[in-house]
Amino acid sequence: MDNLIIAGTTYSSRLLVGTGKYKDFNETRLAVEASGAQIVTVAIRRTNIGQDASQPSLLDALPPSRYTYLPNTAGCYTADDAVRTLRLARELLDGHDLVKLEVLGDPKSLYPNVIETIKAAETLIKEGFKVMVYTSDDPIIAKQLEDMGCVAIMPLASLIGSGMGILNPWNLQIIINQSQVPVIVDAGVGTASDAAIAMEVGCAGVLMNTAIAGAQQPILMASAMNLAVQAGRSAFLAGRMPKKIYTASPSSPTTGVIGS
């Protein structure tokens, strides 16, 4: 079996999905089911004091018994805030220690602040967290994060929520070639072909949210992404034919053509 292994745990799906931006929890649930994802990211936010506690929650729609929750630090701009958020997440999720670290540097581009990211990763790893880390596609930073003990390197393909696709497959390739831990594209995928390209380049997985939640029909797109990730992975394993620039090569026999 061709499985994704993160921090010693085996997953059959290589698609990881976010749970934000859906119209309601039912749509979230149906989209996650269609995606085939086993790992779902969640955000940690202040509770609305005074809100009816009997209101359905995300945990009801996506039972933690069935999915691996990946609490994230989206919205954090300092190492300190990210660390505090994940300590709260670990308490919230009964000691669950697999987390997605993301420390942003700028509210406009949502580009990661790699210096704060490295600081936060250091503390979290010391405290026993298994850190999957969102980062830029800088191979030097990626290597540093891996050497520190991050369990997955998650470079952006393009800006978060932009849907611009895989803008620098060459950098991704460098990171993939140098990494012993899974490299998972996180952010920037817009449509199924983007996910397939990420997998064909050799990524271990793809993490996306807006590409599914922001589609006209999120559930149909979730299933398209499921297929694309599988197709891309198979193509990677199969090994593509070499490109022959300006040189055609017929697929049919060149002899025995009638009238010759």
Partner: peptide, 10 residues
């Protein structure tokens, strides 16, 4: 005090 819950997010 900070009191938090899990919500949908990417």
């Amino acid at each position: 005090l900070e009191i938090v819950v899990a919500v949908g997010g990417g």
